[in-house]
Computed example of a mutant assay.
Amino acid sequence: MATATVNGLTVGYEVIGGQGGGQGRTWALTPGGRDGRDTPGLRELASALAERGHRVLLWDRPNTGESDVCFTGSSESAMQAGVLAGLLARLDMAPAVIAGGSGGSRVSLLTAARHREVASGLAVWWISGGVFGLLSIANHYCGGSIRAAWEGGMAAVAALPEWAEVLDRNPANRRRLLEADPGGFIAVLERWMAAYCPRDGELVPGLPDEDARALDVPALVFRSGASDVHHRRETSEHVAELLPDARLVEPPWGDGEWHERQAARTAGTAPGLFVRWPLLAPVLHEWAADVLPTA
Rank of each mutant, 00 (worst) to 15 (best):
R223E: 14
Y196V: 06
H115D: 07
V118Q: 09
E234Y: 01
A119W: 02
A226E: 14
V11P: 00
D211N: 06
G36D: 15
V239T: 14
G36S: 14
A85L: 13
E202P: 02
V69S: 06
D245E: 12
S108H: 02
A28T: 06
G144D: 06
V15G: 11
G143W: 00
E44G: 02
P198E: 01
L280E: 10
D60N: 05
D216S: 05
R276L: 15
A180T: 02
G86M: 13
A156H: 02
R232H: 10
F274I: 11
A156P: 00
S236P: 15
A158Y: 05
L248P: 07
D209G: 04
A264F: 02
D38F: 03
W287H: 12
R175M: 05
S108M: 00
M154P: 12
A194Q: 06
G36Y: 12
S74V: 09
R169S: 11
Q23T: 10
L135K: 05
Q19H: 14
G53R: 01
L9A: 14
N63L: 07
I16P: 00
A155F: 10
A288D: 03
G12H: 12
S67Y: 02
E14K: 07
P278K: 12
L122F: 01
D60Q: 08
A28L: 06
R174I: 02
A267E: 11
V69F: 09
G104P: 04
T294D: 09
A270P: 03
Q23P: 15
E234A: 04
M193Y: 07
R90Y: 07
R265V: 15
L87Q: 15
H231G: 01
A270T: 03
L87E: 10
A180P: 00
P31Q: 11
A81P: 00
N139W: 03
L57V: 03
G17H: 09
C70Q: 07
R34T: 15
S236L: 04
W277G: 14
Y13V: 08
N139D: 15
W59H: 11
L109A: 09
A195G: 12
F274Q: 13
R90M: 13
V239E: 05
G21H: 09
D245F: 03
A156V: 04
V97Q: 02
A289E: 11
S120L: 11
P293Y: 01
V69D: 07
R43C: 06
A195Y: 11
V229D: 12
A263K: 05
A194C: 11
R147A: 14
G206V: 01
T64G: 13
P62R: 05
L243F: 01
A194T: 15
D228Y: 12
S47T: 13
G184P: 15
G268I: 03
E76K: 10
R223G: 14
T3N: 01
E51A: 15
G41F: 02
E66P: 00
H140A: 14
G101R: 02
N63V: 06
D92F: 05
V157T: 11
W125V: 05
T30F: 02
D216H: 04
G101Q: 05
T26W: 02
D216W: 00
P252K: 12
F185N: 11
G65N: 11
I16N: 10
W163K: 05
G17P: 00
L49F: 08
